[in-house]
């Protein structure tokens, strides 16, 4: 079994700068997607710090056993979170910068997905698709009963993030583990895609392009732009292939 990864990022049709960042490597089995929080001045810097921080931590680590992955991710994310907060504190115009993070590490026949914010990872298999990550926004927290109902009434933006890198000193990250099998495709993306293209359409586009995975990121980005492209769009596609 081997993994191939392709990815791209696009400014979209409305924004003046691209606050998304991405790193993908088939060789190292790594995908990192970050979306600097919109409206914040330093969103671009925060997302780039998150991606580079995760990439450097992973590349400087010789090898990882399965049981070492979670501690490694928690430690790396914690240090990236602190770096973003400190950088913001030291630069008045960047204070409060934050970013989402979706990162996949492929170790052996497993994928480890770490996640903060509302960038997403989906699993596609045999024409069917699942959202693996849980959006850390007010709406979802209220629905689950983790926040009181009044939060929604008091906050005009139900999609506002509850968890992200740079928001708080304590950084609580979701880490998921999934066994892989040939034929599976993982899609990691910023909300610039999912806000513009429905899950149903995404699934159809993946199904139509399973034999040309390298083209999929651009196909999905084009679809988001066709539908308005109101946000930056980042897409990473990981294909699980037979050896």
């Amino acid at each position: 079994m081997r993994i191939v990864v392709y990815g791209n990022t696009n400014i979209g049709r409305v924004r003046k700068n691209n606050q998304d960042s991405i790193y993908v490597s088939s060789e190292h089995g790594l995908v990192v997607v970050a979306d600097g929080i919109g409206g914040r001045k330093g969103g671009e810097i925060a997302s780039s710090m998150a991606v580079n921080g995760m990439k450097n931590a992973y590349l400087s680590c010789e090898s990882l056993r399965h049981e070492e992955v979670s501690p490694f991710l928690i430690k790396s994310i914690d240090s990236v979170n602190k770096a973003i907060i400190n950088h913001g504190k030291n630069n008045a115009d960047l204070e409060g910068m934050a970013t989402t993070l979706n990162c996949i590490l492929y170790v052996g026949e497993k994928a480890y997905i770490c996640h903060l914010g509302d960038s997403r990872t989906y699993l596609y298999y045999q024409g069917q698709m699942w959202q693996l990550t849980f959006d850390h926004n007010i709406e979802n927290y209220v629905e689950r009963g983790w926040l009181p109902d009044e939060t929604l009434m008091n906050n005009p933006k139900p999609g506002a993030l509850v968890r992200a890198l740079g928001l708080a000193e304590e950084c609580d990250v979701d880490i998921y583990e999934i066994n892989l099998r040939p034929g599976e495709i993982l899609l990691t993306c910023s909300d610039g895609l999912t806000g513009m293209v429905s899950d149903h359409e995404i699934r159809k586009m993946i199904r139509a392009n399973t034999s040309q995975l390298h083209k999929l990121p651009n196909i999905l980005i084009e679809a988001a732009n066709r539908n308005g492209g109101v946000d930056n769009i980042t897409v990473a596609i990981s294909g699980v292939l037979k050896d």
Partner: peptide, 8 residues
């Protein structure tokens, strides 16, 4: 456990 997946 919000930690791992079984399937599809």
């Amino acid at each position: 456990d919000m930690e791992r997946f079984i399937g599809p």
